[in-house]
Design a protein around this nucleic acid. Structure first.
Length: 375
DNA sequence: AACAGGGGCAACCGCTTGCCG
DNA sequence: TCGGCAAGCGGTTGCCCCTGT
């Protein structure tokens, strides 16, 4: 069976020979590929255009980076996948020199298994049910690295009436950090879109990948699991003008305008998580602590598991709290789209399907539309 | 040394999207 | 507005190689 697109021709299939590669490279180098369907004919190949295109994109392109993925790349994949899901092409855009196919294969053959081994659902990055249950029962396989354990740690060891299952953040965080080689770079909360092209850590800046499609790119990192999260929370709060913890960034406060959209888009769960977990333990938490946590059971969670969800952080933009987050996982990032929030990766944000309820709580609709309008 | 099983990766398939007449 | 075509994209397949028995 041939390709439906070229069933009229007799085309070769299967692995490419070095001769075929050479022909294709020569032709593309000399003439480009304005029309893939014409490429095989002109290049003297018994292949269909689609096959030529794939071969070029996935293997022959000169800017491809071959070889194993670095830890940095792996972390990026995990973080972006947590946000985007199986959108390999989008993920690959954040890994210069890597193709969607390569990222996809690496995910399926390596990362997926690592996450599962960590007791994490590779689709949601949340704890798998079995793992959650065992955590609640206190007999998890690796208590030193699971979110629940961290929760207890960060809470000074105080017992709590519920287990916060979040968030994607600690789950992914956990996956990234374990097993942690001593020299390993800090776990990251990755944010894309800072035109400054820097990795923004709370204690240092490191060069980031030069994302070509947004002029820069940023990875926000937090030095260490606990201190970093606390600091993240503090940054969020210090930037907010609201002492009532409404965090109405859409109103154009210092958070959205000053720290920049990169920080805004920093996985909101970081702030939420730290805030929910540590309310009262850090500067940021103190503000939020003025509002009680909203605890609500969530479908699909194991019995006894409750999602800690500080309304203060969840409801940016002054919009009403959504009854359920549906595809939003647990984020309402309307706060991300402040008046100054134009610097971050629109494509990424759009692809995330993040919506805004409007700066004044008016339910004005899609944040991207709003952004494009503003710009 | 031979074989079986599993993993990794390149390539394919088919659906979706975007463009153009 | 509609249909055709090309490109993009994600899921799946199948081959090859490595490892364990």
């Amino acid at each position: 069976m041939g390709h439906h697109c070229c069933s009229k021709q007799k085309v070769k299939r299967g692995l490419w020979s070095p001769e075929e590669d050479e022909k294709l490279v020569k032709y593309i180098t000399a003439h480009g590929h304005s029309c893939w369907s014409a490429v095989p004919k002109h290049a003297g190949l018994q292949r269909c255009g689609k096959s030529c295109r794939l071969r070029w994109i996935n293997y022959l392109r000169p800017d491809l980076k071959r070889g194993t993925f670095s830890e940095q790349e792996e972390r990026t994949i995990i973080d972006v996948h947590r946000i985007l899901g199986n959108r390999w092409a989008q993920i690959a855009k954040h890994l210069p020199g890597r193709t969607d196919n390569e990222v996809k294969n690496f995910w399926n053959s390596c990362i997926k298994k690592k996450l599962i081994a960590q007791g994490l659902d590779p689709k949601t990055h949340n704890l798998l049910r079995a793992a959650s249950r065992s955590l609640i029962q206190g007999n998890g396989p690796n208590p030193s690295s699971n979110p629940a354990h961290q929760f207890h740690h960060s809470n000074g060891g105080a017992t709590t009436p519920f287990t916060i299952s979040s968030p994607t953040k600690p789950a992914a965080y956990d996956a990234i950090t374990a097993p942690p080689p001593p020299e390993m770079a800090p776990p990251m909360y990755d944010v894309v879109g800072n035109p400054a092209g820097m990795l923004m850590g709370h204690d240092q800046a490191i060069p980031a990948y030069p994302y070509p499609d947004n002029g820069g790119g940023v990875l926000m990192s937090f030095r260490d699991q606990n201190a970093g999260l606390h600091q993240a929370s503090m940054d969020f709060m210090n930037g907010s003008s609201s002492s009532a913890s409404s965090m109405d960034h859409a109103a154009g406060n210092a958070f959205s305008q000053g720290m920049g959209a990169a920080a805004a888009f920093m996985d909101v769960t970081a702030g939420m998580w730290a805030t929910a977990v540590d309310s009262g333990m850090c500067a940021g938490g103190m503000e939020v602590a003025q509002q009680p946590l909203q605890l609500q059971p969530q479908a699909g969670m194991v019995q006894g598991e409750v999602v800690g969800r500080p309304a203060a952080v969840m409801n940016g933009g002054g919009g009403a709290a959504a009854a359920d987050d549906k595809g939003m996982d647990m984020m309402d990032v309307s706060s991300v789209y402040g008046a100054g929030a134009t610097a971050f990766d629109l494509e990424l944000m759009e692809s995330c399907g993040l919506f805004c309820s409007g700066g004044g709580g008016g339910g004005a609709g899609n944040a991207m539309e709003q952004l494009q309008w503003d710009c």
